[in-house]
């Protein structure tokens, strides 16, 4: 007979939560870097670059994260590129996030009035200076609420990487439940842990939204 829930299981869950946080951070940081490049490509002056970036976004947005994960982990494994689950998971999340963030940020950059760019260009600033000093600071305000909203989604989506054998929070809860079979207690605790991670992000997003709306008047 299985024994009851004890401290060791709780520690195990917290370890899983730690991996969830780490995976989310990997997704945020590398997805953010990739997303910035995708955004730059989408607003490039060169049409071919814009098109390639667009195809990338369309493909990634049209494929479930789970499939990307399988392709990266198992697909590349068969091709002889075997990698530890953490690297595979990080890579898949980066591919996924960079497409979505790239598109969110492109929209934000293009939401900055064209006249701002025009005025800056008329002051003899280079294209890069116009972007850095005039457009991006204004685009960041516009981009913050949808970006944080997307990050909440990503944090929850990291549960999918359990399928490649990665023991993050969801998988840890599953493992414990297989031993002691107390699904309400175990998954309830896991749910509370996810909530404890996501709610502050949501709250922060709402505060930012309010602040930015006031700023816009």
């Amino acid at each position: 007979m299985p024994t009851g829930f004890n401290l060791n299981y709780l520690i195990y869950l917290f370890q899983g939560m730690g991996w969830t946080v780490l995976l989310s951070l990997l997704a945020f940081v590398f997805g953010g870097l990739g997303g910035f490049l995708v955004m730059l490509a989408r607003i490039s002056r060169i049409e071919a670059v814009r098109r390639i970036a667009n195809v990338y976004i369309q493909v990634v947005q049209g494929v479930p994260l789970l499939i990307i994960l399988f392709i990266v982990y198992f697909g590349l494994g068969i091709l002889g590129v075997s990698m530890p689950p953490l690297v595979a998971a990080g890579l898949a999340l980066m591919i996924y996030c960079s497409a979505f963030l790239g598109e969110i940020w492109r929209g934000s950059v293009e939401a900055v009035p064209r006249t701002q760019t025009e005025a800056a260009e008329c002051l003899a600033l280079t294209r890069w200076q116009v972007l850095r000093d005039v457009v991006l600071p204004q685009a960041i305000r516009i981009a913050t609420p949808p970006t944080v909203g997307f990050l909440v989604q990503v944090l929850k989506s990291t549960s999918l990487v359990s399928v490649i054998g990665f023991v993050e929070l969801t998988r840890a809860a599953q493992v414990i439940n297989n031993t002691i079979f107390q699904p309400f207690a175990i998954f309830g605790i896991a749910g509370v842990m996810y909530f404890a991670l996501c709610y502050p992000l949501s709250l922060w997003s709402r505060i930012l939204e309010r602040k930015l709306n006031v700023g816009r008047r």
Binding site: E121, C122, A124, D133
Partner: peptide
């Protein structure tokens, strides 16, 4: 554009 300055109807200051 260093030689020619321009002022627009809508000011276009950087907010």
């Amino acid at each position: 554009r260093q030689d020619v300055g321009i002022v627009f109807q809508s000011y276009n200051l950087f907010p």
